[in-house]
Design a protein around this nucleic acid. Structure first.
Length: 417
RNA sequence: GGAGAGGUGACAGAGCGGCCGAAUGUGCCUCCCUGCUAAGGAGGUGUGCCUCCGGGUACCGUGGGUUCAAAUCCCACCCUCUCCGCCA
């Protein structure tokens, strides 16, 4: 949720929201609704004050005065009921309209849409197309079996087998050890959550059709560990000296991938179920921008440590999503497609998400909303497939990155069986 | 899945429909006393929102209801705990 007071008073803030697609009309309508809400709230509260006062007098009144006083209080109560329903309507309107206004973009974010990102840096050499694409390689070695998974569960599922499993666990261990070194606390969150948590974490209603629902139990399968980490300190007041609070959540993630028919159908690139280590930080307003850089740096350490060629981009304002004020993506060169594909991303949500969650920081002499950030430490499936291609030798064998060897004891991936 | 108990402030734990934002105890903060510490004494100690900065208002698991008035009565839901069953 945006800061309505600031939206009405801070021109830069307002401009940031407009850069993300909120129209002047959206904003003015919202602000008008907000001032109506404040007005009706004041009316309702003063009526309630009068009503409370009248009620208290009844308790102290003589028996013979009671009837009159009750009648008078009853009259006030009717007015109050009306005022309260006006207020509820005004609040509803503000709530609905505020969903249309995204978290303002940071000044360093370029204008434009999906294509208008800014490349911040490029690292590593881009290999030529490999002998096997990642999906061919998986089938070739028998370590990713999509064909049988179709029988089991349908398209966009896979059996991961043999050395791919060992590689997966090595990646998890490696990523978590890197994150831990930066103070991130490892967490395994629940993968099934209530509807309310999906809303509070900002995934509902927007991404509702991307989420699996277990109707019988009214629970939802998370699409990322971010859900559990964002909700960890809901309605809590964090102490300034315990910040930043950093978490690295490891979980399976489930996505329906609605509306992606025909895209990336082969291999592990886009599947309904995958594992991921997700970073999440709670900070103050003063430190969140530094924290974003820290997360990005950690992500680069991970991707770079795996010796994958990548570029870092700053996502343009129109492609940010509602919550992010700024977002970096790390895109890895995928040799079979001869282009960069997204592997990780990290965002500063500033206070937008914390406002909805009511996560606050108690300072020296004031309490303010926390700033939250999140980022991918390692999307296992996608990282593996990037290794399959970028570390593939001319003969089609795949060399395991140095840093993972202590964790899996493999130098080269072998075929199953 | 079956049976029962319960959800009140940092914690423990009271609370007749009005004088309850809520006793009391512990903890915490300030001060006094005191070689130090402990003990003892005095005062203070929740959060959100609105504000003409005087205040006002809301919150006792959540949401409804009854009433002039609800922590207190009614309904539904959620959660926790105990026992039994099942189980990685």
């Amino acid at each position: 949720m945006i800061d309505l007071r600031r939206l009405s008073q801070d021109a830069d803030y307002r401009h940031g929201a407009e850069r993300k697609g909120a129209t002047a009309e959206n904003i003015d309508t919202l602000l008008a609704a907000e001032s109506r809400r404040l007005e009706t709230m004041q009316t309702a509260e003063s009526l309630r004050a009068a009503s409370n006062k009248a009620s208290k007098e009844i308790g102290r009144a003589n028996p013979e005065e009671r009837a009159d006083k009750i009648a008078a209080a009853s009259e006030l109560k009717q007015q109050l009921t009306q005022a309260e329903s006006d207020l509820a309507a005004a609040e509803e309107e503000v709530k609905t309209l505020s969903l249309e206004v995204p978290n303002p973009a940071h000044e360093s974010v370029p204008d434009g849409g999906e294509e208008d990102y800014r490349v911040e840096k490029t690292v590593g050499d881009k290999p030529a197309a490999p002998k096997f694409s990642h999906s061919e390689l998986g089938e070739h070695l028998g370590i990713v079996d999509s064909e049988r998974a179709v029988r089991m569960s349908g398209s966009r599922f896979a059996y991961v087998k043999g050395d791919a499993v060992r590689l997966q666990f090595a990646l998890v261990q490696w990523a978590i050890s890197k994150a831990t070194a930066h103070g991130f606390i490892p967490v395994i969150p629940p993968v099934l959550v209530r509807e309310e948590m999906m809303e509070l974490a900002g995934f509902f209603p927007t991404d509702r059709n991307q989420v699996y629902e277990l109707e019988q139990d009214e629970l939802f399968l998370i699409g990322t560990a971010e859900v559990g980490l964002a909700g960890l300190h809901r309605q809590e007041r964090l102490q300034l000296d315990e910040l930043p609070l950093r978490y690295a959540g490891y979980s399976s993630c489930f996505r329906r991938e609605a509306g992606t028919y025909g895209k990336d159908t082969a291999g592990l690139f886009r599947v309904h179920q995958f594992d991921k280590v997700e970073l999440f930080s709670y900070t103050t307003a003063e430190t969140s921008w530094d924290e974003l850089e820290l997360i990005r740096q950690l992500q680069e350490e991970i991707v770079g440590g795996l010796e994958l060629p990548y570029q870092v981009i700053t996502v343009a304002s129109g492609d940010l999503g509602a919550a992010a004020a700024k977002k970096y993506d790390i895109e890895v060169w995928l040799p079979s497609e001869q282009r960069y594909r997204e592997l990780t991303s990290c965002s500063n949500y500033t206070d937008y998400s914390a406002r909805r969650m009511s996560t606050r920081v108690v300072g020296e002499d004031s309490t303010e909303l926390a700033h939250t950030l999140n980022g991918t430490a390692c999307a296992i499936g996608r990282t593996m497939l990037n290794i399959f291609e970028n570390h593939q030798q001319e003969d089609g064998t795949v060399v395991v990155p140095e840093v993972l060897r202590p964790f899996c004891g493999l130098e080269v991936l072998s075929a199953v069986g």
